[in-house]
């Protein structure tokens, strides 16, 4: 029951699936590989894909006619569940070669999968803050403070997100808020180990996806994509340092 799709339709499928994997935090290599497989599965003669963290370009050649499409990723949002779903979808497509409409409805179905509600992310922030306080050798006091500061930090980041503040500013605000809140908590709990509490909460701002994908890009020899991620990571790190600096001056 294999369907034959027009070049336009195949290109459209490959571009949108590649776009979603990129947007939800898949590695560059996974995006390129997926799009290439999809094109070749539907019997395109040649498929050329180039992706970096902010855009994807695909060109497909069939019977000497080439067609190309590009999509720009404006804002990445990490959702590894959807990366997994789209990855699985592309595998099934390559095996069963479904019709264009079927693929579109599959994509819609994945896009409508539920996200964790907001309170789960509030809980996660608090949990991470509290756990890292123990992890860095803190006691019960540090754990409680980091738990609460993590709780508040989620709302700070939420406001920054709602105001569509640039990544740099969001990190400055987040780390400044962390340091100030921990300093305030030190008034309530005398002899609180402020360093442990601060680091525990700042771990929340570590760009884990960026670092890991950067390393994965280098493994896959996508040096352009990897290099841009290193620059972004340094950028985020300086923002956090700036936030800490600003609030230390306040002290």
């Amino acid at each position: 029951m294999s369907n034959t799709l027009s070049q336009r339709e195949v290109l459209d499928i490959a571009t949108s699936i590649g776009f979603y994997i990129l947007k939800y935090g898949g590695e560059t290599n996974r995006v390129e590989d997926t799009a290439r497989r999809l094109g070749l599965a539907y019997e395109m003669d040649e498929v050329h894909v180039f992706a970096i963290s902010s855009s994807i370009v695909i060109t497909m050649v069939k019977d000497g006619k080439s067609l190309s499409e590009t999509k720009r990723v404006i804002k990445q949002e990490t959702n590894l569940d959807r990366v997994e779903q789209f990855n699985a979808l592309s595998r099934t497509i390559c095996e069963t070669l479904p019709s264009y409409d079927e693929v579109q409805s599959n994509i819609k179905e994945i896009e409508s999968r539920s996200l964790y509600p907001f309170w789960i992310s509030v809980f996660a922030y608090s949990l991470i803050g509290g756990s890292f306080a123990i992890f860095f050798g803190g006691g019960l006091k540090e754990c409680i403070v980091s738990f609460l500061v993590g709780f508040i930090l989620r709302f700070v980041m939420h406001v920054a997100d709602k105001l569509q503040s640039p990544l740099f500013f969001a990190n400055v605000a987040g780390s400044a808020a962390t340091v100030i809140l921990v300093q305030l908590a030190a008034y309530i709990f005398p002899n609180l180990n402020t360093q442990t509490s601060t680091i525990s909460v700042l771990m929340l701002l570590v760009p884990g996806v960026l670092l890991t994908n950067c390393i994965r890009d280098f493994v896959a020899t996508d040096y352009t994509a990897g290099l841009s991620k290193i620059v972004e990571a340094i950028f985020v790190a300086s923002a956090i340092a700036l936030g800490v600096g600003v609030s230390v001056l306040w002290r």
């Binding site: 990490t78 569940d81 959807r82 964790y116 996660a124 756990s131 890292f132 992890f135």
Partner: peptide
């Protein structure tokens, strides 16, 4: 303690990344 705290911290990040 490090085992449990690392477990919970990683679990928290898993939630944030929607796993």
């Amino acid at each position: 303690p490090p085992f449990i705290s690392a477990l919970f911290a990683t679990f928290g990040f898993g939630l944030l990344y929607n796993i």
